[in-house]
Computed example of a mutant assay.
Amino acid sequence: MNKVNNAHKVPFKLTEADAEKLNSKEGLISVMSKEPYNIERALRYVNYLNKLEELQVELIRLQTWAIEKGERIIILFEGRDAAGKGGAIRRITERINPRHMRIVALPKPTEEQKSQWYFQRYVEQFPKAGELVLFDRSWYNRAVVEPVNGFCTEDQYKVFMKQVNGFEKMILQSGIRLVKIYMSISKKEQHKRFDEIKNDPLKQWKMTPVDERAQDLWDDYTEYKKKMFKKTNTALSPWKIIKANRKTHARIACIEHILESIPYDKNTEI
């Protein structure tokens, strides 16, 4: 039997505007998608979809401005495994012109790449004029993931930490705009998301050996993350930490930060 969740500490009052939102295709789907039915939850989701659409229009405006002005933009996403980086990137890119943007998620380096300057394979992915490039993990692999998992030596880690701020200064001085986002989740939330991935045949491919060790190495990740922020959260190239336990809130916060960080012309016609 269908159930309705009415367990509210304070009686929930549905306004006429709320009822209109729920009486849409998105509203009806959000109400009916989960049992027990929860009107408040459904309304929150519809509000999220409406806000997301509003922000995606602004992303199109930003991209149009970047194309017209020949701007080069890099947005990099870091965070623990299952923090929602991929989901945020999908919402950012799903409405913009795919011919003027790229998503970069590099595999582990080849033997040839290992012999090169560490930053080289990332530089090769940098944007041309009018292009937006989003890194799903970046050169900051060497700040956290690699030392935690033993994928680099201590000397390699130290060299990276000495060079990274200068590297980013060169990026910015060359005229490229750089936005750094770190998506932060709790250990409990990461465990919950890993369980969901493992039990979903459509998502099981996402689990890697590195993911499998993430919970056991939680404190090590925390230690290196703190070192990374202390060294690289500079006035010239700051980090934006997004609390990502709630995916919808995190996606909205990411887009808002991007729009706030890049001084695009808000009157650009689209």
Rank of each mutant, 00 (worst) to 15 (best):
L217G: 10
E189T: 14
R213S: 14
K108N: 06
V210E: 13
A143L: 05
E111N: 09
D211G: 11
K158D: 11
V4F: 10
T268M: 07
S33K: 15
K243E: 15
T268V: 14
P147I: 02
E35N: 12
K192C: 05
I197A: 12
L134D: 01
D220F: 02
I262S: 04
G87H: 10
L52A: 13
D155N: 09
P98H: 09
N149Y: 06
A214V: 06
G84W: 01
Y264R: 11
W205D: 13
E16H: 00
L43D: 00
D265G: 03
I185T: 10
D81E: 15
R142V: 03
F126L: 15
K230N: 14
I89E: 05
F151Q: 04
S186N: 13
P238E: 07
E111Y: 00
P127C: 11
V31C: 10
K231H: 08
R142C: 04
Q204H: 06
D200R: 07
A105N: 11
K128T: 12
I67R: 13
R99A: 11
T110Q: 02
Q56H: 08
I176S: 08
R137Y: 13
E131S: 07
I74K: 04
L14F: 03
E71V: 01
K85N: 08
Y45D: 04
E94L: 08
S33R: 11
E146Q: 08
E35T: 10
Q120G: 02
K247E: 12
A129H: 11
K187G: 00
V145M: 10
K226P: 00
D200M: 11
A82P: 11
T110S: 15
F135R: 00
G175A: 08
E196I: 14
K187W: 04
N38S: 04
G84I: 01
K9T: 07
V164C: 06
H257D: 05
L14N: 00
S24N: 10
D18S: 06
K108E: 07
R99Q: 14
V210S: 13
I89W: 06
Q204F: 11
P147Y: 06
L62S: 06
N165C: 09
A42F: 09
E20S: 05
L76P: 01
V159H: 08
R95G: 01
R90E: 14
L28E: 12
W239T: 09
Q215I: 14
E16N: 07
S33P: 00
R72H: 09
S30D: 04
E256Y: 01
Y182K: 03
A19S: 14
T110L: 05
G84N: 05
Y157F: 14
N149F: 12
V31F: 13
F194G: 12
V31A: 03
Y224W: 13
Q215D: 15
A17Q: 10
K51T: 14
D195N: 14
K225M: 06
M32K: 06
P11Q: 06
A82C: 14
Y221T: 06
I96E: 04
C254F: 00
R102V: 04
G27W: 02
P263K: 12
G84F: 01
R121V: 08
P36C: 09
W65N: 12
R44S: 14
V57L: 14
T232G: 09
K240V: 05
E223W: 09
N141R: 02
G166L: 03
I73C: 01
D81M: 10
E26L: 09
D220E: 11
P11F: 02
H191K: 15
V179S: 03
Q215W: 15
W205Q: 12
I60K: 13
T222R: 11
E256M: 02
